[in-house]
Every structure is written in structure tokens, then in C-alpha cells.
Design a binder for these strands. Structure first.
Length: 856
RNA sequence: GGGCGUUUAGCUCAGUUGGCUAGAGCAUCUCCCUUACAAGGAGAGGGUCGGGGGUUCGAGUCCCUCAACGCCCA
């Protein structure tokens, strides 16, 4: 406890209390608490390769207010932080920073010195390093970034227990990730399969359904003449991808399409390449699209994959993994002219091939008319720049209900069982799960990630036996199959016939981050802890990653623990710039959080964030931060003022009706705020507290301050002082989750310990030993009377301090009783010398004010 | 094409089972240096609650319908 400063200030309170909270361990998780006494948060681990922006400040503040509320409610709060330093963005940053590239075939070098630490020259050729070395460099660089992140979050006032920090690339996370994967494998939930896969030709990796996005792109319909095999004429087919013509394996129309019914079961020959393909029926063919009959190529889009699978068509792939047409004409293309046509296309990119083949069709007379430009949605990897291709490759999958109705229904039920904040977000989950069309592809052809923890045996011909992977013992995890050796083998047997080979791939970043509850809760590494925190109380996150992070987490926990990973999902909204557009760096309208902390104070920035209702997109507003700063300043000033009246025994009951009515009003606010926080509605709690607080400062304190000072009436003075102090204590605690710095500052002027470990206020403590019942009417009548007197002075353009000779009041009997009961305070606040009151039925309160002559 | 959300004052938004004269902040205007706070305070003006229809004693709130904007999924 310190004394009240002469001139209260918000300057530097962040630094002061950040340090105190750190040294006092104010937010340490008490792991002796059992599950029912714990509130656990599955905090989103921010990506470390970027920088923290206002969106982070916004949503992490929301979570923090709720965590602080439950801590004050007596829960042991498990509030960890994690850094997501695993994945493509880090990989690219490390390559550019150190001037290296990852090559899993290179042996590990202890104490490797990279060629550069920052800014390699432009003409530098990246030096290949082993995967373990590459990961070491990732860890070195991310450690720097992570310190910056931690400092910012501490400055924001997040009540995180930093001793629980994890990173997604550290050994323990890789171990957890690999362990969970091996358990999925053992139970048959993970499997490997060679299949057509969406493929990014620039990143040269497979991509999962959840990472797709549609983008509108311009294209053109080419009308191409296929020739009926019986020579009876042509079939015209519209396609936007004529370059795939050499990959055509069938032409397909809708079963009900009268135009093509006679052709089903016959064959046609492709133009230029003269390959015979069947004419088939399938309901996915769109009657009204182009000519209504489509060519099926392996593969142009996902519909082709369905047709290929369901109609059991041939495979005639021509797109290689770099996005270019393969060197040799594909299987089934045997016509000599056709082969020479193909050879002219080999090695071209898809785009170049399209131009070339359009020219060839035009000169052969097999294209009808000119290409007709259209715009249409094209599938992209969300981080990619070129349209996805579909290539066949061997990949790992985890089942997710996309091919299994029973599992899908179970996962839908898990989602339905969650409490969603706001509730309508549940539809995004069910929409996504119902639309799944395949299992979750988890393998990626990248390096900086958690390796798929398996090896494969090679037979005596050196062929890979994919169907019976060699798995490590769990106690050996984490492993890297590119450097570790499976049991029973030696390093010398790597890649040798009869030996083994490591799986070259890593797991999708979501395959690890889907285990944040298990990682943070130290599943299998500390099961005593895990049992105290799992299933978590809440998963806070952005609504844009419901289909990825939220759903993937659900899948993993469903498989491993037969439970949902949490009971609540709290979805935060977006930050929009003041013009209601999404904030973006390119527009130069991005303000860094630290600048705002400096300018307005952390509490003010939190005030802006906490004012947004859960899940609602919100405009960035410095105006709101100014208001927040004003509020924090007011809390300081009113505390100084109230404490200036001197101590009072708060256990004694207030006696004045005005005081009792104020405490009852505040008790109702406490009830509302408690209910709101329990439902994650920090915004309502803020609004109710703030609204009461300003009324308290502007009206109540003004009404009673003279009485509180007065020595004439010790009983009236004591009543006011007790009420003021009870209210002050309550208000400081109501504000504590929202404005942790200002409230901690003022709390320490008169209380012991941290306000953040104080007990959440109750209505019972406020109204303890008060005999009167709530009396809103009394407060309203008294405040209305004061407001009229104030307005009279404003309209007369005199100071509020100006005396009133006579106040003639007209009011109903009930209001008159209230005004009489509170008169001493009204007279003090309005400087009224004499008054009279007349009863009038059904009358609103009216006051005729006779001002004292203005002193010259 | 399916789903979800939003539409209330110039701006940003509250308005919780239907119920006082629809509220707040910002902005605007007026006034006040008042011993907690001038980085403050006291006041004022400003809205046919997106349009139309319905239920009801009573609708911003419930139902139907239309529209605009935004998002998710296909």
C-alpha cells in the first residue's frame, strides 16, 4: 500500500506494474488446483515471422479480460502463450536472413556457421544445409522475434503465465505432434495413398482443401471439334483449358441431356492427337454450361478427379510438378501426327501450351470461331500466385469425415456441443464439415516443419514399400527420419536395396497447431497437469480459421481423447480501418501497437478493444482510445478525491437513503457484469460499469461531497464516506479486467495486494447490513431536480457555483418524498439557500429557480 | 446456388424473454477557470430505428417479404 500521490498520472504505470506483476508472479498458474477450480485458455500462438498488429491487440485483449475475470472469481487460470514458428513464412525468412537453403540430403554439421547473419548480397547463391541445421537456424532467428512479441504482450497487460510458454517447433511440440500422428496411424486414422492431389507448382507442395481459395480470373471458352469414331460428324466441346486436350480420357454429358443421349456408349476421337475416348454420362456435367458436354482430362479440376474415380477412366497425366507439360507424350497417345503435335508442346508451361494449342487447333480447322473471354473462379493455394494444378503423388492423410459419413456426423455433433461466442459462428463449422469432399492431406513437400516420423523399407530392387512404414518407439520422439535410423538398421543401409529410406515430407503446419491443447497442457509429458486443464474452457480465435485450426483441433482431440478439446469457442472479429475497409499495410494506414501504447496508454488501447462486442468487425478508432484514456484518468482522480475524505469503517452500514440507493444501483451493475463476463461478454460488462461510473462521478459524488466533508452531521458524513469507499472498491474491481494498469495503480493507494488477485465484487458485500430496499425512483427524482437547477444556471449563463436564493419545486407526492429525503445533498450541490415544494398529482418535477444576484 | 450476419442521430455503436418520451460516445453549438479532474465540467440541438406488409392493447424488438452491404460454403 502506498499513499495517494499529489498529482495522479498514468505516465509510466505500464512499466511499473509489468515489473511488479513479473516479480510477484501475479498471474502464475496454481497447478495444485483441480480441474473444476481451473479456467484454461487454448491461446492462439501467433506466427512469429510477421509482426504483431492491431488485430492481435484487439482479440488478445478480449481473451485477457475474461481470463482476469475468472482469476478474480477464484479460479486458477491456465493462460499460456505459444509462438507459431513452424512453417513456410519462417522458412522463407531464414533463407533470406542467413543465405542458406534446406537440403535434407546434406549431412548434419555441428556448430554450423551460416554464411551471413542478415542481408546476404543479392548475387549470393544459397548454401545447402541439412534439415537439422536449418531448424537450428530457424530457432535462432525466431528467438529474437519472440522476445519482441513477449515485450509487446506484456506491455498490453496480458495476464499470461509466461512460464508456460511453448513454441511449435521446439522438441516437445515436435514430439507431441509426432506422437499424435503415430497414434492416428496405429488406429488407422492416418494413412498414405497415391492419389490426385491439388498441387502448387511454385511451392512444389501438395495443398489441403482447407488451404484453397477461389479467385476470379479471366479465361476463354474454346470450342473444339471432337470427331465421332463412326465418322458421322463432330461433337463440339467448350473448354477453358484446351492445353489439357492431350490428357483427355473421356467426354461427359448429363444423363438427362437429350442432345447427347444417343452418343452415350460410343466413342469420339480427340482433335490433333487422335486418341479414342468414350462418351459417358454423369450428373455433374452441367447442361447449361457451354455446349453441355465436357472433356474430362487427368486432371484439370476436381470434377475431373471425381469422374476419373467414379467412371474408372484411364490416367493420362501431362502436367508435371513444376507446372510444365511432361517431356514424353503420355500413355495412350500413339498416333504419329499426334505425337509430333505433343512434342511441340512438351516443356511448355500450361499458359504457353494453351496459346500454342489454340494456334494448332485453329490451323487444323478444329476450333470453331474465336476463343470467347469469360471470368470464372479458379482454385489457388491461399499463399500462392499461380492456379493450382492436380498431380498424382503419394501423400499422408488423416481422416476427417470427408469420406466417412459416420465420422462426419460425430464431428458435427462435437461442433454442435460447443458453446459458440457469438452463437451464429456454429454455422461456419457445420457448413465446412458438411462440404468436405476428402480426407485431410497432412504431408507437405517442405523442410521446416515437423517431419512425418516414419521410414520405409526398400526391397531387394530398391523399391519403396510404402504400405508398411517403419515407426519409431514413442520414447525416441522427436525424430527426423532424414538423419535418424529406424531400429534394426544402420545408417549405411539408407537408400540401399534391402535397407530403408526416411519419409522426406513434413506435416502441414495445422497438423501441429491442431494439438495446441495437448502441447500447452503437456499431454503425456505431464499427464497430471494435462488432467487439470483438459478439456480447456475456451478456444479464442479468428473466425477465418474455423475450417482449419478449430476444425483440425476438433479432429485430433476427437480421435485421441474422445472429447471436444474445449467447451467454448470465442471468435473475434476483424479490425477495419476507419473507412470500414480491412486494414492493410499497402495503404499506409497501419499504426503500430507500441506507438499507440505510448500515445494513449495500454489501458486506453484495451478500452477500445473491449468496447467491441464479441465477434463483431470493428473500426480502428483512436477517438475511442482518447475516451479510454479519459476514463483511466478519471479513475485516478476520483480515487484520489474519495480517499481524501479519510478512512471510514466500511463494515458500518450507511444510513442516508441516497447512499443506500446508490449502493443498490451499483449492486445491480455487479450482477449484470458478472453474468456478462460469464458469457464472455466483456463489452457489456465494460458498458455497464462505465455508464454507472460516469453517473457516480458526475452526479452522486457531486451530490454527497459536501455532506462527506461536513462536520455538522457526523452520521450523514460517515454514511457518505462509507458508501463512497464501498463503491470505489467495487468499481476498481469491476474495471480491473478491462483496465488492469490504472486499477492496479489506484488499488495500491489504499489496499494491500494486487487488485487482480482480489475477489470479484458481489452485490451482497455492497448492500451488507443496509436495511433499505433498492430505490431507483429516489435517485431519479433527486438527480432530475439537480439537473434542472444546473440547466437553469447554464441557460442563465452563470457559473454552476452561483447561489440560488429560492428553488420552488412542483412534484408528485412520491417524488416530493424523494426530493425531501435527498434535499440536503441537492441544496449542497446546487448551492440552494431556500426551497419550497408543492404537491401536484401527475406532475413531472418542475423547479422555478431564483438565482442570487451576481456579485460584481 | 446454399448458409450466416449487418442495416438505429453527421460518424461509431448500445438497445437481453415485446412495455416509460428510442440511448451513449465522438463530432457540432452554448455556457462555466468549479479546491479531485480544463488532457475538466454543466447543458443544447440532432433519429418516421433500410422499404413494405402482418401479429398485438402496445413492435427498433416477433412473423412474412423486398432491398443494399459484408462474410462463409459449394
Amino acid at each position: 500500500m502506498s499513499t495517494v500521490p499529489e498529482k495522479p498520472t498514468l505516465d509510466n504505470i505500464e512499466t511499473k506494474w509489468m515489473d511488479t506483476w513479473r516479480t510477484q508472479g501475479t498471474y502464475d498458474f496454481n497447478r495444485s488446483a483441480t480441474r473444476d477450480a481451473v479456467f484454461s485458455v487454448d491461446t492462439p500462438p501467433p506466427t512469429v515471422s510477421g509482426s504483431l498488429h492491431m488485430g492481435h491487440v484487439f482479440s488478445y485483449t478480449h481473451t485477457d479480460t475474461v481470463a482476469r475475470f475468472w482469476r478474480m472469481r477464484g479460479k486458477s487460470v491456465f493462460y499460456p502463450m505459444g509462438w507459431d514458428d513452424n512453417g513456410l513464412p519462417t522458412e522463407r525468412r531464414v533463407q533470406n536472413y542467413f543465405g542458406v537453403s534446406c537440403d535434407p540430403s546434406v549431412p548434419y554439421v555441428p556448430n554450423l556457421q551460416p554464411p551471413f547473419r542478415g542481408d546476404p548480397p543479392k548475387n549470393h547463391t544459397p548454401v545447402p544445409v541439412s534439415r537439422p541445421n536449418f531448424i537450428e537456424l530457424c530457432e535462432e532467428l525466431t528467438a529474437q522475434d519472440e522476445q519482441v512479441f513477449e515485450d509487446l504482450f506484456r506491455r498490453l497487460g496480458l495476464s499470461v503465465d509466461w512460464s508456460l510458454l511453448y513454441t511449435t517447433i521446439e522438441d516437445r511440440s515436435r514430439r507431441t505432434s509426432q506422437r499424435a500422428f503415430l497414434r492416428n496411424l496405429a488406429r488407422g486414422e492416418a494413412y498414405t495413398q497415391e492419389a490426385p492431389t491439388l498441387w502448387d507448382v511454385d511451392f512444389r507442395t501438395a495443398v489441403a482443401q482447407a488451404e484453397l481459395e477461389d479467385r476470379e480470373r479471366s479465361g476463354a471458352y474454346h470450342t473444339i471439334a471432337f470427331h465421332k469414331s463412326d465418322g458421322s460428324g463432330d461433337v463440339l466441346i467448350d473448354t477453358t483449358r484446351p492445353e489439357l486436350l492431350p490428357a483427355c480420357v473421356a467426354v461427359i454429358a448429363h444423363p438427362d441431356d437429350e442432345r447427347y443421349k444417343p452418343l452415350f456408349g460410343t466413342t469420339v476421337r480427340t482433335p490433333l492427337f487422335n486418341v479414342e475416348v468414350p462418351v459417358l454420362a454423369h450428373p455433374l456435367a452441367q447442361i447449361d454450361k457451354g455446349t453441355g458436354i465436357a472433356m474430362c482430362c487427368t486432371f484439370g479440376d476436381l470434377t475431373d478427379v471425381i469422374w476419373w474415380r467414379e467412371l474408372q477412366l484411364n490416367m493420362r497425366a501431362i502436367i508435371s510438378r513444376d507446372g510444365r507439360l511432361i517431356a514424353e507424350a503420355p500413355h495412350g497417345l500413339t498416333d504419329e501426327t499426334g505425337i509430333s503435335h505433343y512434342n511441340a508442346l512438351a516443356g511448355k508451361s500450361a499458359k504457353q501450351a494453351q496459346t500454342a494449342i489454340a494456334d494448332m487447333l485453329a490451323s487444323s480447322g478444329e476450333m470453331v470461331g474465336e476463343p470467347r473471354p469469360i471470368t470464372h473462379p479458379v482454385k489457388f493455394y491461399e499463399k500462392g500466385d499461380r492456379p493450382l494444378e492436380i498431380v498424382t503423388s503419394r501423400q499422408w492423410y488423416i481422416r476427417n469425415g470427408g469420406r466417412d459419413a459416420e465420422l462426419r456426423d460425430a464431428l458435427l455433433a462435437r461442433g454442435a456441443g460447443l458453446t459458440w461466442h457469438p452463437d451464429h459462428m456454429r454455422h461456419r463449422y457445420s457448413n465446412w464439415v458438411e462440404g468436405l469432399n476428402g480426407d485431410w492431406l497432412v504431408s507437405r513437400q517442405r523442410w521446416f516443419g515437423v517431419p512425418i516420423p516414419v521410414w520405409y523399407q526398400l526391397n531387394e530392387h530398391g523399391e519403396v514399400l510404402h504400405e508398411s512404414p517403419l515407426v519409431p518407439n514413442e520414447s525416441h520422439l522427436p525424430i527426423d527420419p532424414s538423419t535418424d535410423v529406424p531400429e534394426g538398421f544402420t545408417e549405411a543401409q539408407r537408400g540401399q536395396p534391402g535397407g530403408f529410406i526416411g519419409d522426406p515430407d513434413v506435416m502441414d503446419t495445422w497438423a501441429t497447431s491442431s494439438l495446441t491443447p495437448q502441447i500447452a497442457g503437456k499431454w503425456e509429458d505431464d499427464n497430471d497437469l494435462f488432467a487439470r486443464v483438459y478439456p480447456f474452457d475456451v478456444r479464442p480465435q479468428g473466425h477465418d480459421i474455423i475450417r482449419t485450426w478449430l476444425f483440425a483441433t476438433m479432429v485430433r482431440s476427437h480421435f485421441e481423447h474422445k472429447t471436444a478439446p474445449w467447451s467454448n469457442a470465442a471468435l473475434s472479429g476483424w479490425i477495419l480501418d476507419p473507412d470500414r475497409k480491412k486494414m492493410s499495410k499497402s495503404k499506409g494506414n497501419v499504426v503500430t501497437p507500441v506507438d499507440l501504447f505510448e500515445q494513449y496508454g495500454s489501458d486506453a488501447v484495451r478500452y477500445w478493444a473491449a468496447g467491441a462486442r464479441p465477434g463483431v468487425d470493428t473500426a480502428f478508432s483512436e477517438d475511442q482510445m482518447k475516451v479510454g484514456r479519459k476514463l483511466a484518468t478519471k479513475i485516478l482522480n476520483v480515487t484520489k478525491f474519495v480517499l481524501g475524505f479519510g478512512d471510514a469503517d466500511e463494515s458500518v452500514a450507511p444510513t442516508e437513503q441516497v447512499d443506500c440507493a446508490m449502493l443498490h444501483r451499483l449492486a445491480a451493475v455487479v450482477e449484470e457484469c458478472t453474468t456478462a463476463f460469464e458469457a464472455f461478454d466483456y463489452a457489456r460488462a465494460l458498458e455497464r460499469t462505465e455508464s454507472f461510473f460516469w453517473w457516480f462521478c458526475d452526479d452522486y459524488v457531486e451530490l454527497v461531497k459536501t455532506r462527506a466533508y461536513s462536520e455538522d452531521s457526523p452520521e450523514g458524513s460517515l454514511s457518505a464516506r462509507i458508501a463512497l469507499r464501498r463503491a470505489l472498491s467495487t468499481l476498481q474491481r469491476l474495471f480491473a479486467p478491462l483496465l488492469p494498469f490504472a486499477t492496479e495503480e489506484v488499488w495500491n493507494w489504499w489496499q494491500t495486494g494486487s487488485v487482480h488477485q482480489a475477489q470479484w465484487p458481489t452485490s451482497a458485500e455492497l448492500t451488507a447490513s443496509i436495511s433499505t430496499s433498492p430505490d431507483e425512483a429516489l435517485l431519479n427524482s433527486v438527480c432530475t431536480t439537480l439537473a434542472i437547477i444546473r440547466r437553469s444556471k447554464t441557460e442563465a449563463k452563470v457559473s454552476q457555483r452561483q447561489g440560488v436564493d429560492m428553488a420552488s419545486i412542483t412534484a408528485s407526492a412520491e417524488a416530493a418524498r424523494a426530493i425531501t429525503a435527498g434535499w440536503i445533498d441537492i441544496a449542497n450541490a446546487g448551492s440552494v439557500a431556500q426551497w419550497e415544494i408543492a404537491i401536484s398529482e401527475n406532475a413531472e418535477i418542475a423547479v422555478v429557480v431564483t438565482l442570487a444576484p451576481v456579485a460584481q
